[in-house]
Structures are given as structure tokens and as C-alpha cells.
Amino acid sequence: MLSQFLILLKKVINEGGVFKSPFRARLKNVMLNDTVFTAVDLELTSLDPSTTDITSIGYVSGLNNKVKLSSCGYHVINTTADLGQSPVIHGLTHDVLEQGIMLDKALSSLCEAIQGSVLVFHNASLDLKALDKVFRDYKFPPLDVVYIDTLQLALYQLNKQHQVLPNNSATLTVCRQRLDLPSFPEHNALDDALATLQLFFAQLQQLGVNSQDNLSVLLHTKAIGRYTLGRDTFK
């Protein structure tokens, strides 16, 4: 009984019933049908954001449910970092990475591509933290981003249906299967980014969100947030 009350209270606070956040007001002015969404995916050497290194970056943009295939970007990073077990997953061995470009160049391309976009990640926190780290490492000026996490959107839907979530029920592949999206080659940064963007468009449809709606309608799913990359760069 008490816990239910707490959940209700938390919900009221988060929905802005008590503390109306300026973020919500900002989102209210952003219409879905003229927002460019750019899905970004990083392939990393480990799952620990404080030590991980980026081996490749993929991104692709879309507007109004339409993916622009010409906006696809993919960079393999020339890194000598300890790859650990990661080549087993994404196939990027030292030989391949040696052909890549330097990370700061890739970051510049990424920054250009995401200008004016809302970012889309599947599992945003890991990729954001990894980006944040390299922003600081390479002394990039801080960048405010608004992002959407398709993993969180999936969990929002799943929690409506399940008390306890089944194992692996929120991986990119399984989420896509639930929405009848075709299978795709996993663990390539560009393909994962493209798959994530498609998933996001499908999730909007599943949520019943209309193209004339504004972004604030996503707030209650807790899948939309803001983040400052390189916040501490100059500290």
C-alpha cells in the first residue's frame, strides 16, 4: 500500500505536477514532424564507461519517419587500445582498426552530423558516458544534447505488460522482432544505428504518437533526456 503511494508520488513529481521543469517547456515547442533524429551507435572495447575505448562510430539521420540513406556515417577508429574480448563481438581486430581514422577526426564528423538533431540511442547511458569521456580527453567544447533511449521506450512498454521482465527482452534485436521489423546484421555501429532509428519510428507508432505532437509527449516514458557532453572539459 505504502509502496504504491510512493510510486504515485514519484510519478506526480516526474510528470511535472509539482515541479514544472523548464525542459518540458522546451520540448513543448519541438514538433515531431520537423525534428531531425540522428541515431548514434558506438562499438566499445568494454562495458565499463570509465576505461572503455571507442573502436567505431556509426550514425544516420531521419526526419518525419523517413531515414535519409545518404546521411549514413561510419568511422573505424585507429586505436591501439586493449581490445579485450570485443573483436569477437563486432569483428574489429587490430588489423582493421589500423586502417581507421583518428578519434578526434571521427568526433568532428559526428558533431557535424548531429548538429540540430535529437540523438537516438539504444541504451543511451553507456554511449553518452563513453562520448563524454572522449570529449574531455580531446578537449572538445561542451555540447548540450537532447536524446531518446529506445531501450527505455521498450522497457516502458514491457513494464505495462509484465511484472517481471523476461531475460534479454530489451535487446535491440528482440525489441525489433516484437515490432515486426526485419532482422539485420548486428554489432556493426552503422547497422545498429540504422536499426535503432527504425526501431524508434516503430515505437512512436506503437505509442500512438502523432506526427503533429510535440516531443513532451514522450516525457512520461522517461526515455527522453538531456545531457552535456564534455561538461567538465574545462574544469
Partner: peptide
């Protein structure tokens, strides 16, 4: 051809 192509998620809405 692909460079000039869009991939649309086609819904009742659009």
C-alpha cells in the same frame, strides 16, 4: 541509387 534513397517507416499516420 542508395545515396538518393529514403527508407520510410510507413504508418497510417503518414
Amino acid at each position: 541509387l542508395i545515396g538518393q534513397t529514403d527508407l520510410l517507416y510507413l504508418t497510417a499516420d503518414n
